[in-house]
């Protein structure tokens, strides 16, 4: 791995952790348990489009582990890990097929679906799927859309900022 890549990856991890912390300071307007904005996904979407896959995976894992150990507990780590892995898989699958906005929306949805599956496994009650499924898919698509729009702006801006750097 080149030094430039290493620096960029470190920077993106730091941005992801910071965004994750930042969003915990802003109260979520909808009364859905565990719902978050998922601004940190901005970093994942960005690296998915700009960097090789292996770097995207490394950045994601580093961000989750750091955020988990800094702000969360073991169970919250488990939830964000399962959500992030499923979300990333779906986004990789969709990336070449559909526009960024839709990729981000489905990323958001499957982040919540992954967490919901984990919640069902942990508690052993699949009924949770019916109780929260609708809200989590709805919230996931809304936050996914937001992150998608932000990612588009971010990608456009980064073309100028990182021009000549990479």
């Amino acid at each position: 791995m080149k030094t430039k890549d290493l620096v960029l990856d470190g920077l993106l991890v730091a941005v992801g952790v910071a965004l994750g912390f930042l969003e915990s300071l802003i109260p979520f307007p909808l009364p859905v348990p565990g719902a978050k904005y998922g601004f940190a996904n901005l970093v994942t979407v960005y690296s998915l489009y700009e960097l090789p896959l292996i770097q995207t995976v490394l950045i994601l894992m580093a961000r989750i582990l750091i955020s988990g150990f800094l702000f969360g507990s073991l169970s919250s780590l488990l939830y964000s890990l399962s959500g992030a892995v499923l979300s990333l898989l779906i986004m990789i699958l969709l990336k070449r097929q559909v526009p960024l906005l839709l990729v981000s929306i489905f990323g958001g949805i499957f982040h919540n679906v992954g967490q919901l599956i984990t919640a069902c496994l942990v508690t052993g009650t699949w009924g949770l799927f019916y109780t929260y499924g609708f809200f989590l898919v709805l919230v996931g698509s809304l936050t996914g859309l937001t992150v998608g729009i932000l990612s588009k702006l971010f990608l456009r801006a980064s073309e100028r900022i990182f021009h000549g750097l990479r």
Binding site: L94, V98, P99, L102, I105, F106, I109, Y130, T131, G133, F134, V137, L138, S141
Partner: peptide, 19 residues
């Protein structure tokens, strides 16, 4: 895109009804 949006829409409706 159309198929994905269709899946999303039907999933939302289904989950809403199953709620």
């Amino acid at each position: 895109i159309f198929i994905l949006l269709l899946i999303l829409g039907s999933a939302l409706i289904l989950l809403f009804l199953l709620r």
